[in-house]
Design a protein around this nucleic acid. Structure first.
Lengths: 232, 232
DNA sequence: CGCCAGTTTGACCAAGATCAACGCAAGTGG
DNA sequence: CCACTTGCGTTGATCTTGGTCAAACTGGCG
C-alpha cells in the first residue's frame, strides 16, 4: 500500500511549518494549538528510518498514524527495542546532541516533526508549554520505570502478558489486539528471544486464554487468566 | 553512628523553608537560588524511609549527603531497586498522586525537600525553572533507558562491570569505589541474585581486575579488563 | 566467647537461550 | 498457473546461564 514506488528513505512533506516568529494573541494561551503550527507532517513508509542512531538530534516527533519502533543495535548483534509509539505518542524529545536510538516505521506511518529550535522559541513565548512538555517526559519516565521492573524481575510469561495487556489498553477494542510489529520486535522489547515469545503465546493459546487467528492479531478469550499470570 | 537513639522514621528539620510568595528581583533570574529558598533540609538515619510506596506524592528531594535507594517490593517478595541517588541527585520528582517507589536512606543521609506546591508557584514566577526541571527529568529518562538496555540484554558480568564503572564515574577517586549499599541492593538493582553478584565479583578478583579489601570497597586494578567485558 | 547479619562458596536445578527443522503464506519467474 | 524461493512464525531437542538451596566464613558486638 505504498503510493510512490520505492524512494529509499526520505519522504514526503505536506504543509510546510510556519515560522514561529510572532504569533497572534489568539493562540498565545493554547500551547497545543501553537505547537501544531510549528509541526510538519511527514509520511514514512514501512521499515524505513525516521532517524538513525548517531544522527543529530534537532527535533522531536508525534505519531499521527501507524507504529514507530525506537531501537538500538549492539555491536555483537543483540538488539534492544526501547519503545513502541502509537497514534498520539511523542518520541525523540531529548536534549542530547545525537540520537541514542534509531526510530523506524513498523508499518506505514505519519509523524509530525517539531524542530528543537522552533520549540525552544515557542517555550520562550508561552512558558506554560515547558510544563506541558515536562509532564510528557514525566509520563515517559514513569513508563520506563515500569519497564525496568518488568525487565529486571519478571518471568517470560509475565512479560508476555504485560505486553498483551498493555496493547489491549491502548487499542480500540479490548477483546482483541492488533499486533503491527514482528515477533522479533516483541522479543527485543521484552528482553526475550523470538522462540520464547512464540512458545509462551502458544501455551496461552493451548490454555484457552487467547486465540491467534493470524500472527498479527491476538484475541483475549480469558482476560482474568492473563491477569492472574501478570499480577504476582 | 546514630545520634538520636531510635526514632522510627520522622526526623529533624533545620532551616524552615521560606514561603515563596513574592521574591526580591535579585533572585528573579536565578532559578537555582530561588529553589534553595523553598527547600527544607532533613536528616534521615540509616535504613529509615524518606517516603514509602503509596504515600501521597507532594514533594521532591535532592540528596545533600549520603546515598538514597529507590525501590519497590512485589507481592511475592521479589524486590526491584530503581535507582541509587548520590550527592546532588534529585529524586521523587513526578506528578502522580502516590509514590510508586519507596525511598530509603542507605546510610545516614541529608536531603533537601521541595514541596510540589511551592515548586509550582516558583515556576509561575520564573518560567525558566520549568525548562531546568524538564532537563533534569530528561537526564533521568536517558539514564532509565540505559538501564533498560542493561536489564534486557546484558549478561551478569556485563551488568556488574557496568555497575562498577558507573560507581567509579561518580565517585571521588577513579582507582577505587566506595560501595555504601549491600550486595542484596546491588543484585536487586542489576536484576540478579546476591549469589551471582558475589560470584561475578569474585571471578573478577581472581582474574586480578579488581581487589575487594572489604565488602564496601572495590579497587579497580585493571580498568581495561573491566571495560573489555562491558563493551561487547 | 558466641551470636548475628551480611557475604562468600559450592552443588544442583530450571528457565530460557541456542540450534535446527519444519510450516505457511506471499511473492517471483518460467 | 504452478514450481521455487523467501521471510516469518512455530515447534522440538539440547545446552548454558544464572537461580536455588545449603553450608561455611567474616567481622562487629553484647
Amino acid at each position: 500500500m505504498v503510493e510512490q514506488s520505492a524512494a529509499t528513505s526520505h519522504d514526503t512533506f505536506d504543509r510546510a511549518g510556519l515560522a514561529a516568529a510572532s504569533l497572534p494573541a489568539s493562540v498565545q494561551f493554547d500551547p497545543l494549538a501553537a505547537l501544531e503550527r510549528i509541526g510538519t507532517r511527514r509520511r514514512v513508509t514501512r521499515d524505513t528510518a525516521i532517524y538513525a542512531e548517531g544522527d543529530p538530534s534537532d527535533s522531536w516527533y508525534k505519531v499521527a498514524a501507524g507504529t514507530v519502533r525506537l531501537s538500538k543495535l549492539l555491536a555483537d548483534g543483540r538488539r534492544h527495542v526501547a519503545e513502541f509509539c502509537f497514534d498520539g505518542d511523542c518520541f525523540g524529545f531529548d536534549n542530547t546532541a545525537e540520537r541514542v536510538f534509531s526510530a523506524d516505521a513498523v508499518g506505514d506511518v505519519i509523524v509530525i516533526r517539531y524542530s528543537r529550535r522552533a520549540t525552544d522559541r515557542l517555550i520562550d513565548e508561552m512558558p506554560q508549554l515547558a510544563r506541558h512538555l515536562c509532564d510528557m517526559v514525566l509520563r515517559d519516565l514513569a513508563h520506563a520505570q515500569t519497564r525496568m521492573l518488568l525487565l529486571s524481575r519478571m518471568t517470560a510469561p509475565e512479560r508476555v502478558v504485560s505486553f498483551v495487556l498493555e496493547m489491549s489498553e491502548r487499542g480500540e477494542t479490548k477483546r482483541a489486539i492488533e499486533v503491527p510489529m514482528s515477533r522479533t520486535d516483541i522479543a527485543d522489547y521484552l528482553g526475550l528471544t523470538i522462540e520464547t515469545v512464540c512458545r509462551v503465546l502458544s501455551s496461552f493459546k493451548r490454555e484457552g486464554a487467547i486465540a491467534i487467528p493470524n500472527p498479527h492479531r491476538i484475541e483475549l478469550c480469558d482476560r482474568s487468566a492473563l491477569e492472574a499470570v501478570g499480577d504476582p
